[in-house]
Amino acid sequence: MTENEISYKIIGAAIEVHKNLGVGLLEKAYETALVYELKQLGMDVKQQISLPLKYKEVTVENAYIIDLIIENKVIVEIKAVLELNPVFYSQVLTYLKLTDLKLGLLINFNSELIKYGIHRIVNKLINE
Results as ranks from 00 to 15, higher is better:
1 M>W: 09
3 E>F: 06
3 E>P: 06
5 E>K: 09
6 I>M: 03
7 S>F: 12
8 Y>S: 12
10 I>F: 12
11 I>D: 12
12 G>V: 07
13 A>W: 01
17 V>S: 01
18 H>N: 03
19 K>G: 05
20 N>G: 03
21 L>R: 04
21 L>Q: 03
24 G>F: 05
24 G>E: 06
25 L>V: 14
26 L>T: 14
27 E>W: 02
27 E>Y: 00
28 K>E: 14
32 T>D: 07
34 L>P: 10
34 L>M: 04
35 V>M: 11
37 E>S: 06
40 Q>K: 11
41 L>A: 15
42 G>V: 02
45 V>I: 06
47 Q>K: 13
48 Q>Y: 00
52 P>A: 00
56 K>D: 07
56 K>V: 11
58 V>E: 04
59 T>L: 06
59 T>F: 02
61 E>A: 12
63 A>P: 10
63 A>L: 02
65 I>L: 10
66 I>Y: 10
69 I>G: 09
70 I>Q: 14
71 E>K: 00
76 V>T: 08
77 E>W: 01
78 I>G: 06
78 I>V: 13
79 K>R: 14
82 L>G: 15
84 L>Y: 06
90 S>T: 13
90 S>R: 14
90 S>L: 12
97 K>E: 12
99 T>P: 08
100 D>H: 11
102 K>P: 01
103 L>F: 06
108 N>G: 04
108 N>Q: 01
113 L>A: 05
113 L>R: 12
114 I>H: 07
115 K>C: 12
115 K>F: 11
117 G>Y: 01
119 H>E: 14
121 I>W: 12
121 I>P: 15
121 I>V: 15
122 V>T: 15
123 N>F: 04
124 K>S: 13
126 I>R: 14
126 I>E: 10
